[in-house]
Write a protein that binds this DNA or RNA. Structure first.
Lengths: 132, 132
DNA sequence: GTTGCTGCAAACGTTTTGCAGATCG
DNA sequence: CGATCTGCAAAACGTTTGCAGCAAC
């Protein structure tokens, strides 16, 4: 139902937006940098400029269609937002990203911030790991 | 014991390095961007080029003398590494950074990665919070 | 037809680098 | 004195933006 999602975001349903959203939908759980997505689009014979990729990803992020992460400090990556919150571990050897969700961890975070008199708005968590 | 730390890192004890390390030592637990540090050095009448600040911070990070964090996605900040691990929460209204350590949280992370057959190498965690 | 979108190239802010001269040991 | 370091300016990097033409509705 990608067209509807774009429309609901108050955006025109254009070819670049459809193609990007379709690609991310077909690759749920995978993470792409703007540049990587640019190459993927080119490989699929979709001629989209890099600037458009950035613009569309930002719009999609605002609309809650994609999530943006910063696993490496110099480049952001994006993935489709499926609505199911999860955190990530990155295998430092292979670069592989593993998604996980841990209810206890989520609860603990709320507890920690409340102990300090705060309310949890958002969090960022990446575990860097290595195969045993 | 700042001179010794610099020497132990295999670096020459130069004025810029001493002045930067001294400043960070005098401001434990505070976080500075390279640019902010540059301004602080200028304010203290220490004429250090921005490129040198970056170079020295990178060398200090490699040597384990300072920690680098990415609270906002466009600018890294540095703080003295006191050897005591801690995580951070950022007040989204004031920008204030609060350090905390939670043993349970640390244990839980190890448990989570071990369940997946991994070993925890490092982690990155920032809680974005708001006063209640 | 009007509005909003796209591509291109140029601009941006942060960080890195090449190099000639200065400093450390 | 030799090795390393510094400052400067220029380059590099990922990302954003201005603008003229194009696509969507």
């Amino acid at each position: 139902m990608s067209k509807k999602d774009i429309k609901d975001a108050g955006l025109k349903v254009t070819l670049p937006r459809l193609q990007i959203l379709e690609f991310l939908t077909d690759h749920k759980g995978k993470h792409y940098s703007a540049e990587a997505l640019y190459d993927e689009m080119k490989a699929a014979d979709h001629d989209i400029g890099l600037a458009t990729i950035y613009r569309v990803l930002n719009q999609f992020e605002t609309a809650g269609l994609v999530c943006k992460h910063q696993f490496e400090e110099n480049q952001a990556v994006y993935e489709l937002d499926t609505g199911e919150h999860h955190d990530h571990m990155v295998d430092v050897d292979s670069g592989k990203v593993i998604e996980f969700y841990d209810a206890e961890l989520e609860k603990l975070q709320v507890k920690i911030v409340e102990e300090q008199g705060y309310e949890l708005i958002d969090h960022k968590m990446v575990l860097y790991v290595k195969k045993k």
